[in-house]
Every structure is written in structure tokens, then in C-alpha cells.
Design a protein around this nucleic acid. Sequence first.
DNA 1: GGTTGCATGTAAATGGTTACATGATTGT
DNA 2: ACAATCATGTAACCATTTACATGCAACC
Lengths: 181, 181
Amino acid sequence: MDVKILCLGVLSRGEASGYEIKKAFEEGPFSHFHQASFGSIYPALNALSSEGLVECRAQAQEKRPDKKIYSLTAKGQQSLTNALLAEPDHDRVRSDFLFILSFAQFLPPARVAALIDQRIAWYRESLERMEGCAAANTAPPGAAFVRNMGIAVYRTAAEYLENNRDALIAEVSAPEVLVAE
Amino acid sequence: MDVKILCLGVLSRGEASGYEIKKAFEEGPFSHFHQASFGSIYPALNALSSEGLVECRAQAQEKRPDKKIYSLTAKGQQSLTNALLAEPDHDRVRSDFLFILSFAQFLPPARVAALIDQRIAWYRESLERMEGCAAANTAPPGAAFVRNMGIAVYRTAAEYLENNRDALIAEVSAPEVLVAE
DNA sequence: GGTTGCATGTAAATGGTTACATGATTGT
DNA sequence: ACAATCATGTAACCATTTACATGCAACC
């Protein structure tokens, strides 16, 4: 599942510029499970264009580069549907947060507390945004399903951190079992 | 947080060979939030060795390459602790599953069902293994905390999929709103 | 006066995976 | 017979990120 397919997916929700596609991965509905940067999006869009999978309409703007608005062609929609039918790769999660927390015994308790508190705040912020989207309820069924799954999972994660934070801090604060009496 | 630090982390739990470190990322406690392949682990171990962060003891084996058992040096432990103090990078999740499911309306309902069922089975298998580890309870506090968070989150995810599976399938099966009467 | 947002694009660097090379042992 | 497990290592390849290049407008 490369950036080209990712762009096709974003465009299936409606026409967009490269800049707007980037935002879909940065703050938008895909930001929680996929990402792409300008350096990969713009070349992908050009490739897609020369393959006839997307169409480009240039919107002139004063004192700014023309905004290039891309939209899916029938061929592009077909190609997307096809790609979606493939067996998905395994999820790949890279969480430095969880890795670091695995070694909480090597960290000052105050640092463990800060790490957890930051993360709780992040989950709570994300949840607020996601719940706002859920209320608006403009998403197609699959997107709503995925978003609500995210809400359920993040809520559990935040609650877990809130409920178990103090116990972990106590454990890493407790004097280690002494080697010598 | 590169492969070198990752190896240092694994080794802080006890000496291990490159092969065993790979297993920690493939099936072991880190597999859910970090990954590394042989092609990155072996060079990392050599670099770590020449920097004096790990020590290597060769265990001769009959008819197999010598098993190189690595262990952390004091300098290595220091370097790990240091790296753990750095601000963690943002989590990076790449889930083709969630991306594909976001476009459920483009897929045959039977495919949506299969996708979800596979995922439920995967969560249930993972949960069984993780709960087994939780019962054994040999992990240091941070690792146990992270593992139990994983259990809570996976359980929520599995339950969400189980509870909402049929509703999504019904939605994508329902005849689309007709354009012409 | 500096940062952020809008807007596109390229090139170099990165960091890693995949595939290859080697080979015995154990299980199916 | 064939695949999987154990065991290490290298090199080619890959996709993506980061940094750069350009520049105006709005906000603080």
C-alpha cells in the first residue's frame, strides 16, 4: 500500500490538491493510521496523472503557485477498488512511547509521570476532535466504523493510563530489593 | 529511536544473540510496537560492540555458526538510560487494514466480513498469548504496565469489531440511494 | 520582525527491508 | 522430499523523510 494508492483513496472522497491531501494525513481522518509527506505526495500525484488515474485542473491564484486540484478518473476508481481488494499488510506500529515505558524502572518517577500525563492529554485531545466528527456524521459507513473504533480504543487507552498511572509510579519509586541486607 | 537503541533495550533484559533479539521483535514483548530485521540488527550489534556499549561472548556450537551472545556493558546501560530520557517521537501507525476498511463501501460485503473476522481472530490469538505472559508475571513493572495496556486496548478493539461487524455489513449491503427513481 | 499557513516541487540523505549466501538439524 | 528452525552476515534496493528552494499574506 504505497503513497499512490493512499492518494487515490483520499481523492475518492472528493477532489483535492496535494496540499490538502497532506492535511488528510496530518490532521485528517487518516492521520491515525497512515502518513505521507510532500516529498512523496507530489511525485505520486504526477505519476498518477501520467497513468491517467487522476485528472488535474489548475486553479489560478494571485501571488501563489497555481493550485492543482486533482480528481479521480473512472480508471483511477477502478485501480483503487482493485488495490483495496488485496490482502492487507500487517499493521506496523512504531511507538517510542511504549518502548520507553517498558523500561520505566530505569527512569526517574517524575519522568514516568510526565510521559504518561502527556499521553493522556494527547488521547483526550484526539478524542475530542474525533467525537466532534462523529457528531457531524458526514462520513461514509466504513470511515465512520473506523473512526468509532478509534474512539473506543483511544478511550480505553486513556482510561488505562489514568487508572494505572499511580500504581506504576509507586512501583518505580519503591526502593529496589536490596542485594545486600 | 534507531535499531541500536532498540537492541540495547532488549539486552537490558538479559544477554541475547542477534537471532534472539530478532525474535523479541517478531513474537516477543516488543513485537506490538516496534520491529527490526536481521539486516539491521546484525550491523547494529557490530557497531555497538566497537563502541563498547555491548560485549560479545562467542559460544561454540557444532555444525552451526558460533552463537554470539551479547550483553550490555555499564557504558551501554548508561547510553540506554540516556536515550530513554529523550522526548519520544510521535507514534507511527501504518494500518492497511483500517485504510481499506475506511472504504468499505467499495468492497463486496463478504470481503468486509472476512477482513473483520480475520482481524478478530488475530486479536483473540494475541490476547491469549499476552494473558499467558501476564499470568506468568515475570516482567519488570514498566513492561507489565505496557503489556496490560495492550491487553486492554486489544480487548476493546476485538469487542468493537464483534459488536459492530454486522451493522457495517448491513450498511454496505443495503442498496445505495438511487439517483433516478 | 518572526512564525504560521498557503502552495508546489526537487534532491539528497536516511534508514531500513528484501534477497542472497551458507549449512546442519528436526519435524512432516 | 520439503519446510521450518537455528544462526550469522552482506549488498542491493526501496520508499520515504528531510532539507532546500521560492514567495506572499496574515497574525502576533
